[in-house]
């Protein structure tokens, strides 16, 4: 049974068809990668999945629920969280606060609780803080908990963004170029990290990535987009030798 099922997804910006009748699916526990040359519409797909754009046509079904037309905030609550191509961690908040922002939607008290410091407020804050610390501990990030996110090294900021997405109790993580700007060693660590959270912690991952080393090492299946259209899909080994994909990336007549 597919966790995410995208059918005939289309979005037009004026005359431009950014995503054109796209079909794909993601099964629970899989790592699926979305690749394609610059401007192929990969990030647009993420924006459609997270409710930033409303599709012109087609449907997005996540765990049996139709997502198109839903607000971003409600989609997050269903269990889809994402990261961004350019890092968007809260640099002026501490690492642990970033994680607590991740669990914001599960923090259940109102303004009166906050002002009068009721038992509920205190319990919720403590619970979320402890959960955040335990989570950071399990991800070997605890020693950085008190640091401001802005003072983290680049690769750690990328990782924190993924952690923050995980902290929203997401089942499906959409990672937009997590390896961008990383050196080979850092992207190697990222590959291991992504494999671990998928294989051991049970997250399902949809990944946009340009670094082919990362994609080939981590992905179970690959979809290739070009000019908004799906041009190929399959196992990494198949994609590597697919002539259509090579042409899309390198150009050529035939």
């Amino acid at each position: 049974m597919e966790m995410l099922n995208v059918k005939d997804l289309t979005i037009k910006f004026g005359g431009l068809v950014a995503v054109d009748h796209l079909n794909f699916n993601v099964k629970k526990g899989e790592i699926v990668s979305l690749i394609g040359p610059n401007g192929a519409g990969k990030t647009t797909v993420f924006n459609l999945l997270t409710g930033l754009y409303t599709p012109t046509e087609g449907s997005i079904v996540f765990e049996g629920k139709e997502l198109s037309g839903m607000r971003s905030q409600d989609i997050v609550k269903l269990g889809i969280a994402r990261t961004f191509q350019n890092i968007r961690v809260y640099t002026k908040l501490r690492v642990v606060e970033n994680i607590m922002v991740g669990s914001h939607i599960h923090t259940d008290y109102n303004m009166l609780d906050a002002i009068f410091r009721t038992k509920r407020f205190y319990q919720q804050e403590k619970e979320k803080y402890e959960a955040a610390m335990a989570f950071l501990e399990s991800m070997h990030f605890a020693e950085k908990a008190d640091m401001y996110a802005g003072s983290l090294p680049y690769a750690d900021m990328r990782r924190l963004e993924i952690l923050r997405a995980m902290a929203s109790n997401a089942k499906l993580l959409l990672l937009d170029e997590p390896a961008a700007g990383m050196n080979p060693q850092e992207s190697e660590e990222l590959v291991q990290f992504i494999s671990k959270i998928a294989r051991e912690d049970g997250y399902t991952i949809l990944l946009i990535e340009h670094d082919m080393n990362v994609v080939m090492n981590v992905a179970d299946r690959i979809y290739v987009l070009d000019y908004g259209k799906l041009i190929a899909d399959g196992l990494p080994a198949e994609i590597k030798t697919n002539p259509k994909v090579i042409r899309a990336y390198l150009g050529g007549n035939q």
Partner: peptide, 16 residues
């Protein structure tokens, strides 16, 4: 604070 720093990211963390 999330609104001040990055409203789009806040929206996509489910913050109203």
């Amino acid at each position: 604070a999330t609104i001040k720093q990055d409203e789009l990211a806040a929206t996509l963390m489910g913050i109203e």
